[in-house]
């Protein structure tokens, strides 16, 4: 039971990560195409605030504060009673509202599959493609050292 709960939390977190990483325009477009319901009661926000980003001394030592970043958050409740949250970098309020609804819909067994296949999967695929491209572009700038042999012997 505990294992299942942990897995479910990990899945929910992955969905939230995908939504937070994705552009608001892409979420809106896929939302319309998927025909997902967008009625929800706003419990909080969408509102923009700051988070203080922390790094670690030397990369892995004690934490220190680097600076702030803008974050927009929203909390919604569906008619079914499911409550969804979103926190995402930036100031896109529409994205935060939709992502919070997506989080709530995902918790509803009636909608989870729709959210996953028609919204999250295509977003994830686009993100993975962009990441792969970035990696491949960086990899092309990798230095291949070769040794020059000098002298006769």
């Amino acid at each position: 039971m505990r294992g299942r709960e942990a897995r479910e939390q990990a899945e929910r977190k992955a969905v939230m990560a995908t939504l937070a990483q994705s552009a608001g325009d892409d979420i809106v477009r896929l939302w319309d195409e998927a025909g997902l319901p967008c009625e929800a009661e706003l419990l909080r926000g969408p509102e923009t605030g700051l988070v203080t980003v922390r790094g670690r001394i030397g990369g892995g030592g004690a934490p220190f504060n680097v600076g702030e970043a803008t974050v927009t958050r929203a909390t919604v409740r569906l008619a079914s009673g499911h409550v969804g949250h979103c926190y995402a970098l930036g100031r896109d309020k529409q994205k935060a509202r939709l992502a919070a609804i997506a989080d709530a819909l995902w918790q509803d067994p009636a909608h989870r599959n729709g959210v996953e296949t028609r919204l999250v999967a295509p977003l994830q695929a686009a993100l993975a493609k962009a990441r792969d491209q970035r990696r491949a572009e960086t990899a092309a700038t990798k230095v291949d050292f070769f040794t020059m042999v000098r002298g006769e012997d």
Partner: peptide, 20 residues
């Protein structure tokens, strides 16, 4: 002018998507 939501977990530069 903005409210503060909190402090993030410390970033892990070891898992960075490296560009350089």
């Amino acid at each position: 002018t903005l409210p503060r939501f909190g402090y993030t977990r410390a970033i892990d530069t070891g898992t960075m998507l490296v560009e350089r």
